[in-house]
Structures are given as structure tokens and as C-alpha cells.
């Protein structure tokens, strides 16, 4: 068993490996981003369930309340949430959700053995078959879609691209 201090060092080291892509290339970046986005979106999801729960009055309400009560509760949470900081935060979540979704689809395909190429006879210094152009194109596609989601969310919440 590790001592507490060793345990903490171990977790810090693990964090470094998980968060720093180093020089290993695009797939490693994808790994890191998929991790970060997954954890961030999970935390957002928990917050989102709690927050939407407040729209009908919060955790103490377990029967159908009066319409006016719920409307007031919704009004209160909207006032709390409607500010530029949360709006930008939500746009970032939009980016991460889109990235995790589309990159995740790519990963499901690879996990089922699609688009990873076939075993061949490698030449010296040849790019490995599994790290191929199709994979990279799909990765950049998910990045582009995520950027689109970021801008779209920003616009939907704050109207930044309106004239």
C-alpha cells in the first residue's frame, strides 16, 4: 500500500501525464481533450440537473406545485443564471460537448476497428497506418464543429453576432 504522501505524488504524476500531451502527436491531444471534456461535461451535467430542478422549486418540492409558484421559482433561477460569466461558461461547455461527441464518434469507429488501416510491411520512418490522414481529418472536423458550437452558443445566449 502507498503511504499518503506517495499516493499524492502518484496522483499528481498521473494528472501530469493525463493533461500534458507532450510531443506524441495529434492522437495524444485527442486523448487529453477527450478526458478534459468528459470530466468537465460530467460536472456540468450534475450542475445542470440540480439547476433545472430549481426551475420547479428545488429539492424540497416533490409534488406538483402551483403554477405561479413554479413560475416564480423559474424566474428566480433565471435571474441568478443570466449573466455574462455563465453565458461564456456555457459556450465553453458547448464547445466541449460538441468536441466530445464528434471525437467520441470517431473513437467508437476506431474501437470497432474501422478507419485504422490494415497491417502491412512498414518502411523505415513511415507513418504508422493507424495514425492516418482519415483519423486526423475527422479529429480536425470535430474541432471545427466544436468551434462552431462555441460561436453558436455564444450568439444564442448573448447575441454577440447580431448587428
Amino acid at each position: 500500500m502507498l503511504s499518503q504522501r506517495e499516493g499524492r505524488t502518484k496522483v499528481l504524476q498521473s494528472l501530469r501525464v493525463m493533461l500534458v500531451p507532450g510531443r506524441y502527436g495529434l492522437e495524444r491531444w485527442s486523448f487529453v481533450l477527450q478526458r478534459i471534456s468528459g470530466v468537465a461535461v460530467s460536472l456540468y451535467f450534475i450542475a445542470h440537473i440540480l439547476e433545472t430542478g430549481n426551475f420547479v422549486g428545488g429539492i424540497t418540492v416533490w409534488t406538483v406545485p402551483e403554477y405561479s409558484f413554479a413560475e416564480a421559482a423559474h424566474q428566480k433561477s433565471v435571474e441568478l443564471l443570466k449573466n455574462p460569466v455563465f453565458d461564456v461558461g456555457l459556450a465553453v461547455i458547448g464547445f466541449l460537448v460538441a468536441l466530445h461527441t464528434f471525437n467520441g464518434l470517431r473513437l467508437i469507429l476506431t474501437h470497432f476497428g474501422f478507419l485504422v488501416g490494415k497491417p502491412g510491411r512498414p518502411e523505415p520512418f513511415e507513418q504508422p497506418a493507424s495514425l492516418n490522414a482519415r483519423q486526423r481529418a475527422l479529429f480536425w472536423l470535430s474541432i471545427s464543429l466544436a468551434v462552431f458550437a462555441l460561436l453558436y452558443t455564444l450568439d444564442a445566449l448573448m447575441g454577440v453576432f447580431r448587428v
Binding site: F45, I46, I49, G53, V56, G57, W62, V64, P65, Y67
Partner: peptide, 21 residues
């Protein structure tokens, strides 16, 4: 436990909002 709570609590929200008149 967290997952069960989220499901139950979320379902409660959905049902209340669904039935609210």
C-alpha cells in the same frame, strides 16, 4: 449513488414540469 440520485431527481423535475398546469 450519485447516478441514482441524479436519475430520480431529474425524473422528478420532468414529471412535475410535465404535469404542471
Amino acid at each position: 449513488a450519485v447516478g441514482v440520485f441524479l436519475t430520480v431527481y431529474g425524473l422528478r423535475t420532468i414529471l412535475i414540469a410535465h404535469l404542471l398546469v
